[in-house]
Computed example of a mutant assay.
Amino acid sequence: MAANPLALGLRAVRFAASDEISQELESRHVRQLLYLLPVLGPLFSLAILLFSAWDFWRDAGNAGAALGIRGLLVAIGAFAWLPSSAFMAPLYRCGILYLTHASALIIAEYVLQDGFLYGLSGITSCVFVVAVMTLRLRDFLGIIAVPSALLAVLTAARMPWQDAVNQLMLYFFAIAVALMLMYVIRSFAAQTVELEGQLLKSARRDSLTGAFNRGYLFELAERAVALARRHGRPLAVAMLDIDHFKCINDCHGHAVGDSVIVSLAEVCMRELRAIDHFGRIGGEEFVCIMPETDQAEALQCAERLRSCIEKARVDGADGAICWTVSIGVAMLDKQRPDWKSLLHAADCALYRAKHEGRNRVELA
């Protein structure tokens, strides 16, 4: 029996579609940042400013200058989460937000007496914000690069070298933990995208053939008909039915019958265009929706499908088995202005093909 196309497709997602998953992951992350920035930005700004209360308790003499530095840089960074910056990419806005706010914290700690000694926890905490902002190593490192260099220079200038090395080691350990957190978040997000994709395929595809199922095909059909009518474009529908399918099941068994159905679907999905919609609507009945297709093209396509299916073979107990299909074609027009009437017309044409000898194409 032929391999299940749906099962093969799902395995392909795991092994060959990592780029597609990554693209979807990036797209979702961008949308999440757009929603996150108006919330994360003000909270981040507020946290940097509230840290000044700790400054006044530790070093009241320099706390005012530190507060001025914080306020200035936070005000500059607020541009990143205000609606006026919507023209910029979300990741660049995140970079500006982190650069200004982390620098505000670092420079303020430099101004304060023993600032780096007591303020390192606040500086390292900011690194974990970047783990939420990014999904890739290069983006993470790009965002923290300038603040990290600033911290290294100012720490070396303010503290004895042994203490400076100790502080920077703790800081880089925090970076390593934040990176691990970023990869954990990305891993869970990627698994979610993959599972959702598999679930969506299962919900939209026929489990035996991999063609669209009846529900999703009809949804696509309603949309295609609406677009064709709105723009005055041609649209054709072809309904296919396997000739004497009951005899195939009775003579060769249901397993062979399933192989015939799968083979038919494979032929049709190979021969049809990317813009066409092909699905299984019943046991051995299939429908093809062909947008941007006039009558001559629709009949030519239906005849090509009939001919290719006639040449197809599946293995049976007594050797290769061949079969044929009858096809009914209907065009969207004034007499058939909607999906229901269009499908009915194709169905009537199909039964006329059956009655007039089978293995043929009839136009409604």
Rank of each mutant, 00 (worst) to 15 (best):
R230D: 12
I96S: 01
M1S: 15
L168T: 10
G283Q: 07
L25P: 00
A224P: 11
M180N: 10
E194F: 06
G257K: 00
A302P: 13
R205V: 05
I327S: 11
V193S: 03
G115V: 00
E24N: 08
I309R: 03
D19N: 04
C308A: 15
L168V: 09
L97P: 00
E292L: 15
E297A: 15
A265W: 07
R14E: 15
E24T: 12
D338T: 02
L37E: 07
G9M: 11
A296G: 03
Y35N: 07
A228S: 15
L105D: 05
G95R: 01
R233P: 05
A364F: 00
L150K: 09
A152H: 07
Q198C: 10
L272A: 02
D55S: 05
D318H: 10
A12M: 12
L72T: 15
S341V: 02
L151K: 02
F140H: 09
S125H: 03
W161P: 02
N249E: 06
Q23C: 12
K354C: 13
L150S: 09
N166K: 11
A226S: 14
A224F: 10
L40V: 05
L305A: 12
P38W: 10
L117T: 08
L67N: 07
A364V: 01
S187Y: 12
G215Q: 15
M180Y: 09
L120A: 05
R14M: 06
D163Q: 15
R93D: 01
D318A: 15
I175E: 06
V237S: 03
E297N: 08
S207C: 08
I275Q: 14
C94Y: 04
S326K: 09
L264V: 02
S326G: 07
E297D: 15
F56L: 05
V267R: 00
D258W: 02
H355T: 11
S326M: 10
A312C: 04
C268V: 12
W323Q: 03
V165A: 15
F56A: 06
P38M: 11
D333E: 06
M182K: 12
